[in-house]
Each structure stands twice: as structure tokens, then as C-alpha cells.
Design a protein around this nucleic acid. Structure first.
Lengths: 132, 132
DNA sequence: TTATTAATTAATAATTATTATTAACTGATT
DNA sequence: AATCAGTTAATAATAATTATTAATTAATAA
């Protein structure tokens, strides 16, 4: 649909399926999560297509890759500025919509041209706290 | 040496070699970087030992695992509170020793018990800026 | 609408990073 | 010096991701 036309990438049923799964999704899924979910409705989906599509969406800033969960990438369709909390036990990720001011003094940037930043919080979610 | 005795893990030449390589090292090496470097002086070193030792040092809070570089873990022997800047092109990581106050309003934590946080900056280093 | 073409799919192989297994070995304690 | 528990290192296994490529398909132009 016109959404994809705006993205300047080809509209395919596979991509539509992935985008539909991601739309409004707050679970911060991994590539595997996406693959498994979309597979149900689209049994010929391949892993390569998931990665291809994520790459396309990433390059169009329609999805953000999170590095918070070491070992695997997690994806977030919400590209507005916000941060995350990871439960170190169950690996659940929740959003944290607050704005933090991070002013870096020029003399500490080592000559870097700063592009962006990300803030992650680590903790124990309610369920995992109960389970001791 | 007594350093290791304090760590309550056995002193072995391999571990000593790894610790010596890490000591004061500001390059934020990956496991492979460490392996290759130590291999020069210690040709029987195995990858498993690098990972074992890193695990041991991590559990004793003598080294911190960084998730800033997606796809691989990087390690930092400086465990004092500080942050990092990653060059998105050459993947160089530099330290940023500034303190940022991150007060998270209770009502936004989703019931999480917060343990810690980390802040990463992304940018282009001087060299990579020049190389357009 | 159809033909063309350039991008995409999906099967598969390859790669990269990490973890697991285990027999031989070795440092620390007795 | 002997014992033993922890460690090494070779290797296999796993997990996540990227690369390859022939067949397919969406977008565009005729």
C-alpha cells in the first residue's frame, strides 16, 4: 500500500505480513520471534526474508535495532525517542518514555561527531521479583 | 599474584596473560581481540580459556561486558562508572567520563526493580570523518 | 494490458560468536 | 609428595546472522 510506496521499497505480501506484525507491537521481538509469528499466517516465510525486510525497514527508519539484549538483536517499530528497561532474568523489554538531557562537553568527545545515543536500564520485572 | 588470590579464582599463566593484556587497556577488545593478542605470547591459549577467564573476571566485577557493538561483545577492564562512544564506521570505542543523572519516576518503571543503566553515544571518529 | 526489468524470495550454505563437553592437566592444600 | 578440585584446551554443538543464487514477482514503461 501507499505506506510502502512512501518507503520506496517494493510491496510484497511477506513484507506486509512482517509490517503488520510489527505495527503497534510493544514486545521488542527478535528476528526469530518475528519469523515464528509471521510463519503462522504465511507458511512459506523464510528467515532470510525476515532479515531482508528488517534491513529495509531499518534503512528507512521504520524500525529500530536494539542492542540491549546481548547475543541477539531485538527490534522496535516505535522509532520515537524513548528508552528501555530490560529484565535481566526473563529478557522482557519495556518502554521508558522520558526525556533525559545528555549534554556532552565538547572537550570529552575525542573529536567525535555525535550522531545519537541510547540509554538502557536493567532490572527485575515484577514477575521475576516475585519468583525470587 | 595476590591480585588473583583476592579474586578467589586460581592463578594460572593463561589468566595472568589475559589480565596483563587487559590491565589499563583502553581499546575495549572483543574476545577475539584478546585471544589473538594473548596468543602471540602464549601460543597454546584457547578460545575457551578466553571466554572462561572473561566469565570469571566478570563475575568478580573485574571486567565489564559492553553491548554497544552489535554482533559481538566487547570487554572493558575499567569498571568505574563511565560511558562510551562508538564510531559507527570503524567500531572504535572511547570512554566518556562524565556523570549523567538519570532519575526515573517511579510511575514509569512498570514495577521493575532497577539495578543499573548504561548510556552509549554513537558517532563518527575524527579519522572516519576525514575519510568522508 | 502486457512485456520488461530490476528487486525480492526462499532454499541453502557459510560465517561468526558463543557455549558446552570432557579428558588431561596443574595449582593449591594437606 | 599426594590428593583433589578447579582449569585448560581440543573439539563439538549451538545460535544468530549474513551470503549466494536460481526462481519468482512487483513496479514501470510501452
Amino acid at each position: 500500500m501507499k505506506e510502502f510506496r512512501r518507503l520506496q521499497i517494493k510491496l510484497t505480501p511477506q513484507r506486509l505480513a512482517i509490517l503488520n506484525f510489527l505495527r503497534g507491537n510493544k514486545s521488542h521481538p527478535s528476528a526469530e520471534d518475528i519469523y515464528k509469528a509471521v510463519l503462522k499466517h504465511y507458511p512459506t516465510m523464510s528467515f532470510a526474508t525476515v532479515y531482508n525486510t528488517l534491513e529495509a525497514l531499518k534503512s528507512k527508519h521504520r524500525v529500530k535495532e536494539l542492542k540491549i539484549d546481548s547475543g541477539k538483536k531485538r527490534y522496535d517499530p516505535d522509532t520515537t525517542k524513548h528508552h528501555h528497561i530490560l529484565c535481566v532474568k526473563c529478557k522482557k523489554i519495556l518502554d521508558l518514555h522520558t526525556d533525559f538531557k545528555l549534554d556532552v562537553p565538547e572537550e570529552l568527545t575525542h573529536g567525535f561527531e555525535l550522531i545519537g545515543n541510547s540509554i538502557e536500564f536493567y532490572g527485575l520485572c515484577r514477575k521475576c521479583r516475585k519468583r525470587h
